[in-house]
Amino acid sequence: MCLATPGQIISIEGDDALSRRGQVRFGEAVRDACLAFVPEAKEGNYVLVHAGVAIAVLREDAAARALDLLGQIE
């Protein structure tokens, strides 16, 4: 379920927790997304966006670790 696409936050607006929004870049396509559920997200972070709503900030350390593991498979 549920197609969620990783994109990079390029700007954030709105102070109120539930009205936080931002511009998110997917490849070279930029779209507005709701950032209410990723209060910790900062500009430059990658978020996972589903149906116009960011549902997670992607953890770069975990991603790097997973790719390391993939590299080690014999």
Partner: peptide, 13 residues
């Protein structure tokens, strides 16, 4: 496929 079309296609499925 340009990166803009590709990104848009990923987002819209």
């Amino acid at each position: 496929i340009s990166e803009s079309v590709r990104g848009a296609c990923e987002v819209l499925g």
